[in-house]
Design a protein around this nucleic acid. Structure first.
Lengths: 219, 219
DNA sequence: TGATCGCAAATGGTATACCGTTTGACGATC
DNA sequence: GATCGTCAAACGGTATACCATTTGCGATCA
């Protein structure tokens, strides 16, 4: 079942690499993204790089500047609030649907992912923990079984990952995810939705604290 | 202030043209979209066509088939339901924010658009009416002043326009839009959200009827 | 000293050419 | 007559080349 003929166009590969670099902070907001340079750096021609940049623009990770170099997006506080507000509306629906449409198999998978997250949190490995956290959300989205919600989730997810990519309380994150899983397991859509919004509020506050710190340290 | 140096890359122009063709039904679901043919047809090279197709894929109007021609997307009934459900969540937030953030100037603009729509409806001009309807929703989205909501709205909007592009009761649409405007004017976010969901339900039912008719006429 | 103008380099936009895979029809085989 | 193999054409993926605009710095002048 893993055959899948995984043919990955260069454009997708380039997008994936650059996306990861942005989320991991390797490329900071405001950094130039020059097509020729990226092409040389990644050993491909400009065409796939162009397409990759278009994708990242669509994801909102890159700001295009017609006829000139694009830059890694700089988020304002308003952008952050906006992201959280929209994401709340989306997550509410996602978790409600997930709670309604869960299956025993999926619950097992979700538990496994959270185990991985908890382990990473105990090991003080933020990168691994966040990756597992992202996987959790992705799996929940899959459980909601709404293709459109998936799409929209993907767009907002990379921004959210970028936003929360640094620290914040890992154990708290794990606890909240466990709570969400509980509500899904119980099939309680209402409770799942409530916890989801609460979870985002926690994330927003953490992001605000982080940004305040960063702003302070820059002066 | 209108100088704006409107430079429109060919890719955007191509995307706009093909999008309109799909929405207007000129290109039917399942139709092949061959890069070389489109390039020849529109008098450009394949590169901008490629980029345009990528955009339309991102909008969900086109289904890509790696290494082969793309096709105009075929929507299933499940896709339609999914679209309406997600759109409900989004519109709820959009209209709530719009009601909170409206300005007198914006209200005037909204009234003007609805006048245009009502006039088109009276003149039995579905195309113009739907375009005005789309403008109304776009303007409301602008009023919500949420960039992210705008983005997501744009993705779902073209699908919705395609879905509702044919007929359905024009006068009913105008009436519902008027009701929404009233709630926005009153600054009643809750009521606006409620009407928005109701409005979508009407649209969904109309779309279902339409699809049922079409399915019936095909056999 | 500081602002302005101009020009070369940088950079994105597009066209063209080539390559490998997929398609689909034709013909051989059972 | 149906099925399968084969092969040329179709098609998307990528590289390269060229053009128009933007950038940014250095020369020039107030």
């Amino acid at each position: 079942m893993t055959s899948e003929q995984s043919f990955e166009p260069e454009a997708d590969r380039v997008a994936r690499i650059v996306r990861e670099q942005i989320i991991e902070g390797e490329r900071a907001p405001g950094d130039r993204l020059v097509e020729r340079d990226l092409a040389t750096e990644l050993g491909v021609s400009r065409v796939p790089v162009r397409e990759a940049l278009r994708m990242l623009v669509a994801e909102g990770l890159v700001t295009p500047r017609p006829r000139t170099w694009a830059v890694v997006r700089t988020f304002t506080d308003a952008d952050v609030d906006d992201l959280i507000e929209v994401r709340s509306a989306i997550e509410t629906l996602t978790f409600r649907l997930a709670a309604e449409r869960r299956s025993p198999e999926r619950l097992t998978e979700l538990e496994a992912v959270l185990d991985r997250e908890a382990q990473a949190a105990r090991a003080q490995d933020p990168t691994a923990a966040h990756r597992a956290g992202a996987d959790f959300h992705e799996l929940v989205a899959a459980t909601a079984a709404s293709p459109l919600l998936d799409e929209i989730g993907a767009i907002t997810a990379s921004r959210l990952r970028w936003l929360l990519g640094q620290h914040l309380d890992l154990q708290e994150m794990v606890d909240e995810h466990l709570g969400l899983l509980g509500a899904i397991r119980a099939g309680d859509g209402q409770e799942a939705a409530r916890l989801a919004v609460e979870h985002l509020r926690t994330s927003r506050d953490a992001a605000r604290r982080l940004r305040a710190e960063q702003a302070a340290s820059r002066h």
